[in-house]
Design a protein around this nucleic acid. Structure first.
Lengths: 417, 417
DNA sequence: GAGCGTATGTTGTGCCCAGCAACAAATAGA
DNA sequence: TCTATTTGTTGCTGGGCACAACATACGCTC
């Protein structure tokens, strides 16, 4: 007998049950929850069985676990749907709107926004603080974020929700793991761990970070994973984009994907702060549009991005010739650049976000014309160009949704909390 | 008693065991096979257990199944590795080179190539027929493909291999499912089902189709899935590319991704058959290089792509000033275009394939300079520009490898044959 | 309204398969 | 030769899914 207790000859014991490798139960729970989310309130256990191919008894067991975990509930008052088929009617299943919720935070140059989204994708809390953070210290800004996060948490709890994670959108570059801010020039941040300042009880796990264009892109994606590919173009101070390919956000080898603002339009064009000439931003950035529309540069730089877009949109709606010409020109150049992206990526849809959303009535047709003229596949499939569903709130909303999506895609992590 | 036999109240019976949904056994078999492939001959059952986190008994069971299925074998003569540790030495496991193999076919304008690759990634058979197919009928070309495929199959069987699938690379556009050729202008094909002409006993399943640039891109990828992202640029008659993101080929919403040949370099540049002006192909396509180097256009059009590249490379190696200037110019323009792609996609590596591979000594440095000057992330990470490992054989090789990769990624499909 | 057909939700059973522990086997070192 | 150590193998256990049978709840018909 070498020592007391059992002789350990098998190496380190596995933690729990096959959590390190493949977990079919987790996958099945996710499948069932997806079905419920897709047709919330209109699907029964038997329907899930049919949709997933799992046995009815298995579907029943999965649903029981999801109900016990507070993610799903039976909805009995489905009086709206008239029964036509014979047989025992199924009990409708729907997502709970008093379960886990995601916290999204958008830190920008002149405002900070937070929002809370529940399982069904509904926005349950929203708060925006407009304040120029350029003159302030990093500590000060981080403290404000933490304060806003706590406020959102309190509001969510009062509403019966449980925050299960948080995500922060920043105007800058984030490392590939989504852990630290590599560089956010307009905030004066570099190599900053934003997640650590968020109160620990808000998230349980560390907050996820990403570029605001990436999170804004996710705000356009349905909560249920579909495999669509699209390019979300975000007009802000610069021009950025978020790339969603086959339903997944593509962040790039270093997390720097989507930098289209400095695509060269004309090698002999105007100089750009990046050191080169004729970059897209110099034609279709908000400042370029302002200047072309005849708004004085001095006023433009003091205005935030949002009011600028509204101002331009107002002038365009009033029929101001200079503004209309400026927007047409910006749309042409933007469309020219996007056509190249489209030939490379072959995404089916281009979504105009940021200031381009408000300006879409004037920019959109120009973009569409350019894109259709230059897209090589245009003979067989017309790419769609459309305005984003959300404006300034898109990054915060997308961030919050990404948290919720994580729960829907892997409910077992929530159940095992 | 309603009828004879058991009353079916559970809907359609499941086929086998959870094959329709999540199959952990299949995933574990793939994990084990991946481990064997990564360190063929140098890993034991215990090593697989350690690498995967699965229990040693489970690893043992998985390996037994893989050995019985003819994918893995024990290698006993590992006399090279000197044992240093105490304890019973493990029996080495390696991929069998007499098991399943993949057939790759490359149909091009002036040649057709087939190759057979075994599980270890080794090329076991290769055959190229040079013949200009432009004047020939579709039926004629398809018959030649079928004949070449049968020849490859016979050779493979004589070599102890079992073809388990085939893939066909075509110079054109393929539908998203990889089932039919939408358009291959140089072959005069459209909406053609190439797979159906291949003898049924060659593949068991239908052959997979894809663009030659896509398959060529896959020839650069290691057989073991790593998550690398790179852009494979293929210089042929036109300029195409294959995009590999996070280890997966991205084919686009319609399967048309990677069309960089018509990115606009100069809106006032020379006319292009595509109807626009100043496309990349007009500067860096093989014909443009020929013309700039002073080779007469008449001779150039009659030459195949491959001899052209060798001719140019020969002149460059001999120090011909016109040729060197032409290549430098082509490299600059190509690098300029690729820098834009890099800012959009943030792939870590650019691979120069097709004719660019042979011309890489002269084009590569120019491309690298342009890319580093224009890539926004260049301050933090230098993108790598390198020549492809394979030249003309890349598409056929990549196609064959894709078949083998499918087996390695899902060995259960092979085992259940 | 009773009976029948039909679809749903639930429960017990068997089986696959991964983890666990013990054991036989094979080596290095004392 | 003996011991320590690592490997490969073999019963055993338990989770979880398919399967089948049953209870339940409706529409439809007479």
């Amino acid at each position: 007998m070498p020592s007391d207790g059992a002789t350990r000859t098998q190496g380190a014991p596995q933690t729990g049950r096959r959590s390190t490798t493949v977990n079919p139960r987790a996958a099945h729970l996710a499948m069932a929850l997806h079905c419920v989310a897709e047709q919330s309130g209109e699907i029964s256990r038997a329907g899930i069985s049919a949709a997933t191919g799992l046995n009815r008894s298995t579907a029943c067991s999965l649903i029981e676990e999801l109900i016990d975990g507070g993610l799903v509930r039976e909805v009995r008052d489905t009086g709206t749907t008239t029964r036509v088929k014979a047989g025992r009617p199924g009990t409708g299943l729907g997502l709970r709107d008093d379960g886990p919720a995601g916290l999204g935070i958008d830190v920008n140059v002149d405002y900070t926004a937070v929002c809370v989204v529940d399982l069904t994708g509904k926005v349950r809390y929203k708060h925006v603080v407009s304040e120029d953070q350029r003159g302030q210290g990093t500590r000060e800004v981080l403290d404000r974020i933490a304060r806003l996060a706590r406020g959102a948490q309190n509001a969510a709890e009062d509403d019966g929700l449980i925050l299960c994670g948080s995500a922060v959108a920043v105007p800058g570059i984030v490392d590939r793991r989504g852990a630290t801010v590599t560089l956010a020039p307009n905030l004066g941040w570099h190599d900053l761990d934003v997640a650590e300042v968020l109160p620990a009880d808000v998230h349980g796990e560390r907050a996820t970070l990403d570029n605001e264009a990436n999170f804004a892109a996710l705000s356009e994606q349905d909560l249920i994973r579909d495999g669509a590919s699209y390019l979300y173009v975000s007009g802000q101070i610069g021009v950025g984009s978020g790339i969603v390919l086959d339903g997944r956000l593509y962040r790039g080898a270093h997390g720097w994907s989507g930098e289209i603002g400095h695509l060269t339009i004309d090698r002999d064009g105007p100089e750009c702060p990046c050191g080169r000439r004729g970059c897209l931003e110099r034609y279709a950035g908000h400042e370029a549009i302002l200047r072309a529309a005849g708004v004085t540069a001095g006023a433009g730089t003091m205005l935030g991005v949002r009011p600028t877009a509204e101002l331009i949109a107002g002038r365009a709606a009033a029929g101001d010739p200079a503004t209309l010409a400026a927007l047409a020109r910006a749309g042409q150049v933007l469309g020219f650049a996007l056509a190249g992206c489209l030939n490379l990526l072959d995404v089916g849809t281009i979504v105009l976000g940021g200031i381009y959303r408000d300006l879409a009535p004037w920019i959109g047709p120009e973009v569409e014309r350019e894109v259709r003229a230059a897209f090589l596949g245009a003979r067989w499939a017309q790419p769609e160009v459309r305005a984003a569903a959300y404006g300034a709130e898109a990054p915060a909303l997308g961030a919050a949704r990404s948290v919720v999506r994580d729960v829907i895609n892997d409910p077992m992590r929530w159940l095992a909390r």
